[in-house]
Amino acid sequence: MFAIAMAAILVTMALALARARLGPTVFDRILALNMFGTKTVLLIAVIGFLTERPDFLDLALLYALMNFIGMVAVLRFSKYGHFADTEPEKKAE
């Protein structure tokens, strides 16, 4: 049964990759990347159960947090053009 879930998650990841390949804007690609990241978390968790090694869950947790931080970093960069402090943020609002 875990194999079915794994296959579905892999199919979803492939579809996300297709969207990342198609584009057309950079935001589509970031969205696809984000989805790929959350699916990776699920995939690691399911693999942990499939191989009966619950230690994998720690990796999944770590990946969930890293995915979020990476996403916010990329978006800050694409919104403001640099990793600066809060000064340009007020100007943009």
Partner: peptide, 29 residues
Amino acid sequence: KLVMILFFLLVTSPTSCHALASAALTNGL
């Protein structure tokens, strides 16, 4: 641990979704 993973996913995914949408709007898409 599974509950924590679900919690983090449910908190972070709308946040990054919103950041993505507002970044796209700021860039004039």
